[in-house]
Design a binder for these strands. Structure first.
Lengths: 321, 321
DNA sequence: TTGAAAGCGCTAACAC
DNA sequence: GTGTTAGCGCTTTCAA
């Protein structure tokens, strides 16, 4: 390639990287030759030399979950716009695999993004040491050079509670997320003030998927709540579907609310009341956190209450009364 | 690190790669030192030397689309199981960006997977030349060393048609996918035999998203079909939602069917009749196509008809008659 | 069994 | 404005 254009390899490099002084005539000759052979510099060699791969890594519990898929989308788009690649790893919700993927990717990438990591704090700290830059979604870690993007779920839960209380609800079931999910604890915080105001919150173990929601419904009903708040919209869709099977009408017999405003939540029947969070925005913010000196360690993302048809005043008697 | 264990770098390498003759005593010393310092070899250097990055690339039109997200999930899981990393790029449905991403990634990765590529055949061929291995999803290319995994959508469409015909439908609207989508042409092929048998198919321009589905409904209705087949389940959910707004009842006034069996399709109201395709399986097959010498160039994936409540016999009069 | 040295492909530093 | 050279961090000869 260099000899095809009859120049040194250094000149080729100068032309292709740009910004270096090269005569127009030579520039042309090199461009032509490169084009001819379809020459592109070896990225591994470039990486080795410059000490940066222009790559960010993303580790998510479940690549199939639209919530994380959209965060990934937001991040990948931002990264691509600044000529960076994106490495991904799904962890199948397994903290062990999450840790291994993170440690492994850390060595490759300029910046690492961990979405809702479930691993222990000491391990997280290990990852922080291994990574050049680390950003966390929906978790925080006291450590220099680790940034976070967290959704203020406690505000969302509180808003949902206030909305339901205003409608007249007094007994609300909360379908909990995965144990050890930091973001579930965030949500739980949001119940403090409503509980202090006299609202009864019944916590029901659940999870984060549609199937989890379906399965948790019957237990939740044994507590005779007039409304159900779900860990996320996925769960809520599962709940809606199961309630329909059980012959209960939403919102007539029971109100249901989700969190996240998943793409489909506007199109369920009835439409789902939820706390809307822009996942793509989360991804974007995560990217901006890779910048050298962010002013604060944690970016808070605030959502907004979206009321749709799935919430209404409670029936006069308890459902199935 | 090497001097910490008082050995040469060559010995360190031998211990860490394994399989080379090293005395147990030295092995132990190196292991300890590596563990101490948290040493991990520089992947760029390894890549440069061995000429392989142990990485596969995936290019998808939309990372936020669950269909592609799940293919990515399937592939990433398989890749990780064999110690490979996964690079992703979303193209925002833009053929130009798709081409650039593909060419760019090709240089990095050992194998490249293009999902439903929209780029022109000549460009696709260029990518094929640039990539070490290339696999296509839902598109084929006559080229040595290019494999494909295609879903037999024509079978799906035919099955859907036969199902609807058996219910008594005679006029069916088809909401088309994105122009230039190879997989839409596949679907169109599926109408040949039903049309020959006397079924009327009305093609309505649409797209691949929920919003596209919503918007296409009114035009579709002007043709007074008794059933609508949608490019995919996303579109179908949009259609369902819009029909509800218009006060039309599914399946009483109109039958609706989708393609793909998206996760939510079992939980819409009414449940969606669809042609089910295992996306994760597609991802897995794609990975297996990266093997050195696959026996055939194209893997066909066959789905199955799933009938749910969204399809039923047509009303006696045309809807809104 | 171990060490020394070459070289993977590239770019920055230094000549000219 | 251009060529020559050193060296990024690793693994793999080749010697010892």
């Amino acid at each position: 390639m260099a000899r095809l254009a009859e120049v040194s390899t250094a000149t080729v490099s100068r032309v292709l990287s740009g910004g270096k002084p090269v005569s127009p005539e030579v520039t042309e000759r090199v461009r032509a030759a490169a084009n001819d052979v379809g020459y592109r510099p070896n990225p591994a060699a470039q990486t080795l030399l410059r000490g940066s791969s222009r790559t960010v890594g993303v580790v998510v519990p479940d690549l199939g979950n639209p919530y994380f898929a959209e965060i990934l989308k937001g991040l990948a788009a931002e990264a691509a716009a600044e000529k960076h690649h994106t490495l991904v790893a799904g962890t199948e919700e397994d903290p062990e695999q999450e840790y291994r993927s993170a440690i492994e990717l850390a060595r490759w990438v300029d910046g690492l993004l961990l979405c809702a990591p479930r691993m222990s704090t000491p391990r997280l700290r290990e990852v922080a040491e291994a990574a050049r830059r680390l950003v966390l979604i929906n978790r925080v870690l006291r450590h220099h050079a680790v940034g976070s993007v967290v959704v203020d779920y406690h505000l969302g839960v509180r808003a949902l509670c206030e909305h339901l209380a205003a409608l007249g609800h007094k007994r609300i079931a909360y379908l909990q997320g995965p144990t050890a999910a930091w973001s579930d604890q965030q949500r739980q915080r949001g119940f403090r003030s409503p509980e202090a105001s006299g609202l009864t919150i019944i916590r029901v173990p659940c999870g984060s998927t549609l199937a989890d929601g379906r399965e948790a419904v019957e237990e939740a009903l044994t507590y005779k709540p007039t409304a159900i708040i779900c860990f996320n919209d996925h769960v809520a869709v599962g709940v809606l579907s199961r309630l329909r099977e059980l012959g209960l009408s939403v919102p007539h017999d029971l109100s249901v609310a989700g969190i996240d405003n998943a793409p489909m939540s506007a199109h369920t029947d009835p439409g789902l009341t939820t706390y809307a969070v822009s996942t793509v925005e989360v991804g974007r913010q995560a990217w901006s956190r890779f910048a050298p000196k962010p002013s604060t360690a944690t970016t808070h993302i605030r959502g907004e209450l979206i009321t749709r048809a799935s919430t209404a005043p409670p029936p006069h008697k308890s459902p199935r009364g």
